[in-house]
Every structure is written in structure tokens, then in C-alpha cells.
Design a protein around this nucleic acid. Structure first.
Lengths: 168, 168
DNA sequence: GGCGGATGTTTTAGGCTTATAATAACTCGT
DNA sequence: ACGAGTTATTATAAGCCTAAAACATCCGCC
């Protein structure tokens, strides 16, 4: 808490804040750019949306450990969205015939959401294309640069989580 | 286009795709984590939303070059959202008294959106807190690491744009 | 002066997302 | 066995977002 001698004087932390802010905006712009292209490609080539794709992919990824499917709560935890959000999303996927809802026998409150054959087929159609879009967009980075970015993002994630704990 | 001798053989590009995908998911997770905290803090501390804040900030940033305000189209271009989206957003901000709509005299189709005094004050209240949240979350990275990240993100952005041009 | 194409904005229909409140079913202690 | 608290899910209200179509105005050309 220094008192500047002149109103126009900026502290060191001000300049640091500004550079951090610029970086954050750049990161946000990159992410939105990539995500927007993925959304657009999913819509144009497969007439679907990113949340739907993510949900199918999550069910498939969990298929080995949970062949009977996942509950709504487990899915919402993994996809990092609220339960209420998931209700509508699953409604639409059921209507499209890509997933099924089965009441869990041991707990009649819960339901197991699982891929139908059509859902698995739709996912298998999309997965290679999805991987290629991402790969293509990151193609301008060398292996070394990608590793560096991966490492830095790991640090960033820990930094954000540490900040969250300080705040709580 | 190599033909694997065994069905289980993965090509080099497959493993590369997987590592790129992992990095992308990490980047997405980081961004969503940070953005989510900013949204939450804006809601709890200022009872507002990120799009509203972004819009006010954009108007303020443009105030020097465009003291009369920005048009809807110009705003939507800068905020990278559709025109239709902006209509509702501006409606709400007008209702809250933070921005004004004035029909542009030279072009009666267009309107100049500008900050009210209350809007400028609300923004000035939020800006330092916003900078501090971001700064705090990036606090675990050294100056060097932040610079590296900034540089890598710059490369990534160019790579994504190059991919977009290849695709079009 | 008026017509045709371009540009600025809103409307519409649909989907995603959240927080909060309500409902339903389970569990545990007594 | 029953009531309290917990957990699983859905309903509701509000906002954000898009694409596509409709509407309004402008500009240039005849």
C-alpha cells in the first residue's frame, strides 16, 4: 500500500497486473477461437453440439469401469456442469436415441445413463474427426513447444486451485 | 497413410493426436476454471455477469477514439458475439441504466451505445477487483513463466488462424 | 425520383447454463 | 417402524448464445 507521489504514478504491481491481464485475454481468445471452431465443425459436419459430444465421450470413456452407465450426478461431476443442466441435455439425447435412461434397481432415485448402439456409432464417427481438428489447429507448435505449453498449463492449474483455497 | 501390420498398432500421428488432445483438454479446463471464478466473483460481489462487464469494459476502452459510443455492429465485432445476442444484452444494460442507446444522426439505422455516468462508475468499481482476481490466480507463475506462456499462446493463435485459412 | 443491392438491427426458435426451490427416495438412529 | 437428515433428480426463472429470417435504412445508378 504505497502512496504515489504523483497521481499518474503506477506501482510495479499495476504493471504486473496489466501484463497478467493481457495474457489472460490472449488465453481466453485462443480457447474461444478453438472451441468455436470445434462447435462449428460439429454442427456443420455432424449436426450436433459440443455438450452432446462431450456427454457421449464421457459415457464411452467410463464404459470399461462402468458398463451399466453413469448416474446423472456422476455425469454432472465429470462434465463439470450442474445437475439441472444435465436433465435437459440427456432429455434431448434420449429423444435422439443416442443414450438410454434406466432406473437403477438398488436406488430408485438414481438412473443409469448409457450409450445406445446408435450413440456409440455416432461417437465413433465423430471422434477421429474431432481429434484431427484439434491436431490441425495445434499443428503450428513443435513437439517441444507443446510440451512446454502443457507443463505451463499444469502449473497454472495448480496456481488457480491454490488461489481458490486462499479465497475460501 | 501407412498400413499397420497389426490391427492394434498405433501410428505416430495417433500418439501425437492423443497428446495434443490431452493438452487441449488441460487448456480448456484451465480457462473454464478461471472464467468460472470470475463469473462467480462478479455475481457475488457486484451482482452482475461477465458479458455485461465485458461490454462495459469495451465501451470504456473505445471511449478515447469513439467518445460518442459504438454501434451495435462494432460492439458485436469487438466482443466476438452475434448481433442478435447483443440486442438482449444492451436491452438489459439500458434497463439497469448503465448504457444509453442514441440513434446515430447520420445513419438512422444505426445507434450509438455509450456508457452512462452510472455505467462508468460501476465499471470503475469492478475493474480493480477484476484485475486482482486474475493476478491472484496467475500468482503461482513466475515472470519468466508468464512470458513463456504469453509467447506460446501467441504462436498457438497464429497456428489456429492458419488452420482456419487452410480449411476455408 | 426511384429501384436494387448492401448494411444495421431486431426477431424467432432453439439450445446451453446457472442458482434456487421442490420432489422423491434412501439411510440411520432410536 | 418411523422420523430427521441426506442425497438424486427435476422444475423454474432468468440470462447467454447462435443461425436464419425479417425489417429498416442507406447508397449508387439509371
Amino acid at each position: 500500500m504505497t502512496t504515489p507521489l504523483l497521481a499518474s504514478t503506477s506501482s510495479d504491481s499495476d504493471t504486473r497486473d496489466r501484463s497478467v491481464l493481457r495474457m489472460w485475454l490472449r488465453m481466453l481468445a485462443c480457447t474461444n477461437l478453438i472451441e468455436g471452431r470445434v462447435r462449428g465443425a460439429l454442427r456443420e459436419q455432424f449436426d450436433t453440439t459440443l455438450p452432446r459430444f462431450d456427454l457421449l465421450a464421457q459415457l464411452d470413456a467410463a464404459a470399461t469401469e462402468a458398463p451399466r452407465g453413469l448416474t446423472m450426478s456422476e455425469l454432472s461431476r465429470r462434465l463439470m456442469v450442474t445437475n439441472g443442466n444435465l436433465t435437459g441435455l440427456v432429455d434431448r439425447l434420449v429423444r435422439e436415441g443416442l443414450v438410454t435412461r434406466l432406473v437403477s434397481p438398488p436406488d430408485r432415485r438414481a438412473q443409469m445413463i448409457s450409450l445406445t448402439v446408435a450413440g456409440k456409432r455416432a461417437l465413433d464417427d465423430m471422434t477421429p474427426a474431432h481429434a484431427e481438428w484439434i491436431s490441425d489447429m495445434f499443428g503450428g507448435l513443435s513437439d517441444t513447444e507443446r510440451r512446454q505449453l502443457h507443463t505451463l498449463l499444469g502449473k497454472l492449474k495448480r496456481s488457480v486451485q491454490a488461489a481458490a483455497e486462499r479465497a475460501s
